[in-house]
Design a protein around this nucleic acid. Sequence first.
DNA 1: TGCAGCTCGGGCAAATTTCCCAAGCCGGAT
DNA 2: ATCCGGCTTGGGAAATTTGCCCGAGCTGCA
Lengths: 217, 217
Amino acid sequence: MSEVAATGISVLLVDDHPIVRQGYRRVLESQGDLHVVAEADNAADAYGAFKAHDPDVVVLDISMPGASGLEAIRNIRARSPRARILVFTMHNEAVLVKAAFGAGASGFVTKSSEPSAVVTAIRSVARGERAMSDDIAHILAEESLSPTGSVLDQLGEREIEILRQFAGGATTEQIAAHLNLSVKTVQNYHYLIKSKTGARTDAQLVRLAASCGLTRI
Amino acid sequence: MSEVAATGISVLLVDDHPIVRQGYRRVLESQGDLHVVAEADNAADAYGAFKAHDPDVVVLDISMPGASGLEAIRNIRARSPRARILVFTMHNEAVLVKAAFGAGASGFVTKSSEPSAVVTAIRSVARGERAMSDDIAHILAEESLSPTGSVLDQLGEREIEILRQFAGGATTEQIAAHLNLSVKTVQNYHYLIKSKTGARTDAQLVRLAASCGLTRI
DNA sequence: TGCAGCTCGGGCAAATTTCCCAAGCCGGAT
DNA sequence: ATCCGGCTTGGGAAATTTGCCCGAGCTGCA
């Protein structure tokens, strides 16, 4: 592994937009102590690049959600528990942030942050510290004060899975077949999810799922 | 106005993410002939910055959709018909592209394009040419061949309005009350819209509406 | 004039949603 | 060990909605 103090901080950049990667690369390299040693344009390639270059920090954008971003984090951490991963995305849902940290991320910075915030966060993460941008901290703080946590916290695993598929456009039959359940059970879940979340309409459910990063539109 | 050949191309950068702007700025300036003379972080400020700096090209990102991006384009073009605007976004829906050109954009490049594509597009647009990235051209070409144009083209005004409200989360009753229609009529529209668009599920309908910019999530 | 398409709504069988209920399971608290 | 609570799975029955067919009034256009 690299000696941070001696050689600076090596960074693996994961983002699905080439131009965005190039931009970040320039911003980071202009700092002097940050070196982008590799790039990947999708979650699947991220681990290969990580193994090949053993960077001090992985800066992972990925338009998220879906789960591919989270999977990439888990993927890397599962095999290299030492890995430092900084999530850098335009999304700012509390659920997403929690999920990212839960999956093993060391930091979470939104794109609305000052450019310097990313750089600072990378250095913090490289030192083994946790890091997040101010807006994320506020959102998390706000959320921890409100009695009602994230909407998804009220839902069980099965419910979340069914909500995801439903919001993705699947019919009740398709979901039932997919999960090996009776149509009736899926219908009941559908109803249960609506009551739990307070959604009165399927459309509201879809919007909810989307705003929680459960599905991308 | 500036002499392109003599002074290079001046660019106004509009993007809501500061770090992204900084990245683009570096990428563009490294080209030698491109100079970022101003930045704006929202559609509303874009025109002010345009008037103040009279750039050769406006590179406009804006997370879109909504309409704020389109409004910014119309806004600028309405008062400065000479303005060259290059839309640069991660969205690639045909409807959005058409809307952008319809609003007066000169070019449309997606973020999935090669970095060089943006630079090339900026130069083309500065010369007064139309420009678009390969993927956009393919999507438009594909669409022009399919008998079904944009999904929204098949829908009447009333249908679109009902679809918008429905996708926004309104119940059938609310829509009926809002538009002074019988619930039955709204139900019939709901059904009609589904058959016309081929959506089999309410969720699919919402996604469709969102992808057409009919509703923001 | 006549056709075509949008808007509006009735009707009715079939499907779905809405609730209520029960049972098995599992983990944590007593 | 036992009980409680929550998740998961489904049945049942009434209430609604959907899927499709229909007719009527209106407008624009050939």
